[in-house]
Design a protein around this nucleic acid. Structure first.
Lengths: 258, 258
DNA sequence: CCTACCGATCGGTAGG
DNA sequence: CCTACCGATCGGTAGG
């Protein structure tokens, strides 16, 4: 201490140093890198938190547990989030963003109402098998601050509205037979959301297998052209469908429509 | 006070009394009545609790709130329950018993696998629109003591197994086309359980309308005989189905299959 | 069935 | 990013 001879030229590490990748002129990282490092830490908090929240439930998880899992202490979390409920909200938002980007992509493409609905069902089913996707249906929005709860409710309504739009559009373009879009959307979304509750990473069913199966099962009854056709516009070879000897428990797990 | 002349014959209320229905020989009610009174109070606690738990979520409801709503104080609740989590469990159990009695009744009757499945779907949909029924899917079993959580998980498995049995039975008796009973049960149960999340007493859809609609929608795709037949054994007049002009928002609310 | 109270938990903050 | 701590809530109990 008080030893001024420490003032050496750090841009020329000696052979005795373990040669860390230090920028030549400054011990501080450039602004961009620091921001990115911060964003990465923030996301690491979310990944740890969402896992714990799903495993144990939001109210049984303490911030100390979250911090422990990241090798820091509770107060450090407050560098990245205003409070526990904001962490919950950001986890939820990650899931919502995944769904939103799926919807954006589907809207950018073409196809009948039925085709769009099938794309949405397939992708949504897959998302329900991810942590952030499941958080979309397993977290209680009443745990959020009022402001964030409002944002979340609005996002939920947009997603629900998309299901209904695709169904109503399909009725218009005659790819889907007439029905009540609201109830049909409820029925489909219910089956899909339920995946977020029963899916287990260590279970028998792969996300792809679930998504493939549900895509057929949930939209087949709506298709205008009857059971064996997909849509008028895309006739296909004989449907590869579960040929159905109920004695065989095995299911295909790969090769879906991606 | 200290007035011994109060010792009058209470079996002969004077015209000055407001004539309460007091038993002739004793100010204490008979044992049976006291037990029943206790059971009624116990159930009143559950009705108040389930409402609050659904409205606000279990963790946001304090026992003081529950007690307040019943015009008593918190410690009084401990005359009827060992603790908060036991109240939650008993609410959940009420719902489970409702489902169990539905299943018992269906099993006592006859019919194809498809017919039984339809009865179950219809009744289950209706239950999801009740408080105790919704508690079955909206409460988190991790809030229960381990012993009660085990009981609840077992009950859930029994219900799930019943869905699968009816479907597998329907495949055997050829009322349902071959499919994977496990996934089919998940899809159906998901749609039904979701009702417990979106149904609102003050909404547009009556429980009967929902039950009728879901019964058709969720089982139609499974029926062996194609879209327009119910089962081989019970041919019917042309299906009264939503004739489906999507512009009409009104739905029938009465006259279902009970 | 009530008054009065304890005890533990836990989110959040002060101040480095 | 840490140590140390506060403050409020709330389930549960003692003792009538």
């Amino acid at each position: 201490m008080g030893n001024i001879s420490l003032d050496v030229d750090r841009s020329q590490p000696s052979t005795m140093d373990s040669a860390p990748p230090v920028p030549p002129s400054s011990p501080w990282l450039p602004f961009e890198s620091r921001r990115r490092a911060r964003d990465e830490k923030r996301e690491a908090v979310l990944r740890a938190a969402v896992q714990l929240f799903l495993e144990q439930g939001y109210h049984r998880v303490t911030l100390n547990e979250v911090a422990d899992r990241l090798n820091i202490t509770k107060p450090a979390l407050y560098n990245y989030f205003r409070g526990k409920d904001e962490i919950l909200f950001e986890c939820w938002s990650m899931g919502a963003e995944l769904v939103d980007s799926v919807i954006t992509e589907i809207n950018a493409g073409g196809g009948s109402g039925l085709a769009k609905l099938r794309k949405l069902v397939h992708a949504y089913a897959g998302l329900m098998a991810t942590d952030f996707g499941a958080s979309l249906v397993r977290f209680d929005l009443r745990d959020l601050a009022e402001r964030n709860a409002g944002v979340a409710r609005a996002a939920k309504r947009r997603i629900d509205a998309t299901f209904r739009q695709y169904i109503a559009g399909g009725i218009d373009d005659r790819s889907i037979r007439p029905c009540d879009p609201k109830l049909a959307a409820f029925a489909i979304a219910g089956s899909l959301n339920w995946i977020g509750h029963w899916y287990r990473r260590d279970g028998e069913l792969s996300p792809t297998a679930i998504a493939d199966e549900f895509t057929v099962r949930l939209t087949d009854g709506l298709a205008a052209a009857g059971r064996l056709e997909m849509t008028k516009k895309t006739p296909r070879a004989p449907q590869r469908r579960n040929s159905g000897r109920k004695t065989t428990g095995k299911k295909r797990t790969g090769g879906g429509r991606g």
